[in-house]
């Protein structure tokens, strides 16, 4: 559940963010914050972002710290579980992707690809609370 993702992330947030030296760039918030997303686009963006984290981010976040790795595993497996539910919405056409959400997600990908893969992955993981806060904030 999202609460479990948040508790897993809170346990390693400081450690992960300390590994991100680039403070001038954001993956999820540049140039427009996620909060400027229409409610009709929320499901699509959430679905895209869950795929993004599962397919691109977590695998490049291995650290030398066993505890951190365990928590990342916990978050990644929780993502799979939540994504499965989002997938059901997507299959029932309740998760339509408009032009704006596609553009916004492409911007996030562009931000990600601007950095080398490890830095981008670690920064994205460090910004997980931005995603969680946005998800929990009702439209």
């Amino acid at each position: 559940s999202v609460a479990e993702i948040r508790s897993g992330f809170t346990a390693i947030k400081a450690n992960i963010q300390a590994r991100d030296p680039i403070r001038t760039l954001s993956i999820l918030s540049y140039p427009h914050s996620l909060h400027k997303v229409k409610s009709s686009d929320r499901c699509c963006i959430t679905h895209h972002l869950f795929n993004f984290y599962v397919d691109k981010v977590f695998k490049h976040c291995k650290t030398e710290d066993l505890y951190v790795n365990r928590k990342i595993s916990s978050i990644a497996n929780s993502f799979l579980s939540v994504r499965r539910r989002l997938q059901q919405c997507h299959e029932q056409n309740q998760c339509m992707c408009g032009q704006e959400s596609t553009e916004k997600f492409n911007q996030i990908l562009a931000n990600y690809e601007r950095l080398n893969v490890t830095s981008a992955a670690m920064k994205s993981l460090g910004e997980l609370d931005i995603l969680l806060n946005w998800m929990e904030k009702s439209p």
Binding site: F58, L66, R70, S73, F79, L80
Partner: peptide, 18 residues
């Protein structure tokens, strides 16, 4: 332990429980 994520996306890696 090995979760579904490790099996499907992380080369079937295993994680020790210290």
């Amino acid at each position: 332990f090995q979760g579904e994520y490790e099996r499907e996306y992380a080369n079937e890696s295993w994680i020790p429980i210290c």
